[in-house]
Structures are given as structure tokens and as C-alpha cells.
Design a protein around this nucleic acid. Structure first.
Lengths: 151, 151
DNA sequence: ATCCTTGCAAATTGTTTGCAGCTAG
DNA sequence: CTAGCTGCAAACAATTTGCAAGGAT
């Protein structure tokens, strides 16, 4: 279930104004670019993309915006590709997914698995916790010599 | 199933000499401290601990040693506590475990779950991969107001 | 007028590297 | 002697921060 930019940005604006913060043109632009991207952007690329629309936007603004979105849980941060932070939009209206990384070529595949999620809740419960969030990354080698994307 | 330091260090020495590398006093010391620690050490603390035994050991040596151990898969690296790298010994003789982090106080709890591991292999297989490795971190909030360790 | 936000540059943090000297084989 | 290893300091990369100026309420 995907969410339109307007909906997502509405969430953002609500959160911002609740904290007497503003949805400035720069922030809206960054939000739009991020929402349009298919995920796993790093800061550098995001900054580049934003600059294609507005040369004046600075690096720090992108970082600060991402931090905001992170705090508001409107993006999900990953570091599994190459250690540097990568971002994808997230919200309760987007269904949760996890990632599998190909050890051969680095391609990232997304997947969902209800069963595992259920077991994770169970495990947490057994340890005395309510499961709030989780990160799971699988690392695989492609079967049959055929690789996911490249080669 | 835990492994003695001697066994683990044997593995290390074997790997090293296979690559005409040496188990120097510094490296042995770092190995010993690391093996004695109960896990999730960061480089800084490890360096401190090592220095309590030998003031002369430098920061870079610790980093280089950890990289070695990582390459040889004799340590497992985590970054989930605060983003900086933390290490714990690992080997085929140590059973695999995953982590749950308390959102309240940051305490890390370890657990194992056969069922989830099986499902992970299944998911990978369905996507056309052989599962090589995985990382899973659960984030939880303690039930009943009682918290894991602190407070 | 106040307070949030911005871009820039400088600062910080975590980690890696170059190098001259040292050490084991 | 050769090759690996060390400590130190400098280099690096990713991210954060201080600050003076700009803009919204």
C-alpha cells in the first residue's frame, strides 16, 4: 500500500507545525525528491538530485532535513550497502519490508515475510519486551551461477 | 557451546601463518582481551583495556587487528548500539545469536531462534539465493514498566 | 522583534594510511 | 637481508556544528 506524496508530506507538515517548525521550500523540495526516489539514496546523491532543481540548497540542509525525517520516523535509515547511510521513505501507511543483499554484486532485493515478523514479536515478548521496530538484512549468494542484476 | 581462548587463538594462528602473517605479542594480547570480554566492545574501550596490560600498543594496531579478525571471520562486527563499530568474538564453534536492543536504556539482549533462521533460509531460497549470513536486530520497549537493567 | 532556517566553512568523529624504525626468520 | 609489524602522525570521509544573514509570523 503506497502513499501519495501529498499524504506523506501532510504527515510531515503536521509534525513540523506541532513543533513550531516550518515546511520551507528547501524542505519541501528535499521531501519531494526523496519521495520520488525508489529508495536507498545516500546523502550525496540526494543532494545532487535536489540541486538539479535548486542549486542553492546546501549540504547541511539535506543532513538536517534527513535527521528531522528520521526523528519523525518518516524515513528509514540503512547502512548495510556500504556502511554509509542510505534513506528510504517510510510511514505506517507503507508496508514494512526487509532486505536481502547479494554478496556477489551488492544488489538489494526487498521482501516481506509475515511469519518472521510474527516470530520476532514472539521472541521479543518472551524476553519481556514489546517489539517496537526491527532491522533484518539477509546476505545471499545467487543460486545456479545466475546473478540478480549485473554480470 | 563456548570455545576456550586457546582453541580460538589456534584458529587465528593457523589463518595467520597460512598467509605468512605473524601472531605478534600485540596481536595475541588484543586477541586475549577481546576473547575475555563479554562482547560489544568498541575500539576505544578495547584499546584502553589492552593498554592496561601494555601501554605501548597503538590505536592503529587495534584497528588493524580487528580488520584482520573480521576478514578471518573470527569476530562479528555490529553497529546497532550507537552507530560506531562494536565487536564480539565469533567462530563456527560459537552458536549464532541475534540481538534485541532496549529502546529505553540501550541494554542489549542476545537470543537465538531456530525457527526464524529456518524461515530466513526459506525466504532467501525463494528469491533465488543461498543464505550466507544475516543480521537481525529487534528494538523493544520493556513490558510492565520494568526495565532490563538500569532505572 | 522574535524565532526558525539557511548556506557556508570550520570542527568533530571514527577510521585508514604512509612512513621510518624494529623484529623475527 | 627480507618481509611483516609497529607506533606515530597525518590523511580521510561522513556527519555535525557555529555563526551571521535571511525570512516568516
Amino acid at each position: 500500500m503506497t502513499q501519495t506524496f501529498e499524504q506523506w508530506c501532510g504527515d510531515l507538515e503536521a509534525r513540523l507545525s506541532r513543533n513550531q517548525q516550518r515546511l520551507t521550500p528547501q524542505r519541501r523540495l528535499i521531501a519531494r525528491v526523496l519521495h520520488g526516489h525508489d529508495g536507498h539514496v545516500n546523502v550525496d546523491d540526494l543532494h545532487q538530485l535536489v540541486r538539479r532543481k535548486d542549486k542553492s540548497v546546501g549540504y547541511a540542509t539535506v543532513y538536517r532535513m534527513l535527521k528531522l525525517l528520521e526523528d519523525y520516523e518518516l524515513v528509514q535509515t540503512n547502512t548495510f550497502v556500504d556502511g554509509t547511510a542510505r534513506y528510504e521513505i517510510a510511514s505506517k501507511h507503507h508496508s514494512h519490508h526487509d532486505h536481502l543483499v547479494c554478496k556477489e554484486c551488492g544488489t538489494v532485493v526487498e521482501f516481506e515475510n509475515e511469519e518472521i515478523e510474527r516470530l520476532q514479536e514472539l521472541v521479543a515478548a518472551q524476553l519481556g519486551f514489546d517489539l517496537v521496530d526491527h532491522k533484518m538484512v539477509l546476505y545471499g549468494r545467487p543460486k545456479l551461477g545466475t546473478c540478480c542484476a549485473k554480470h
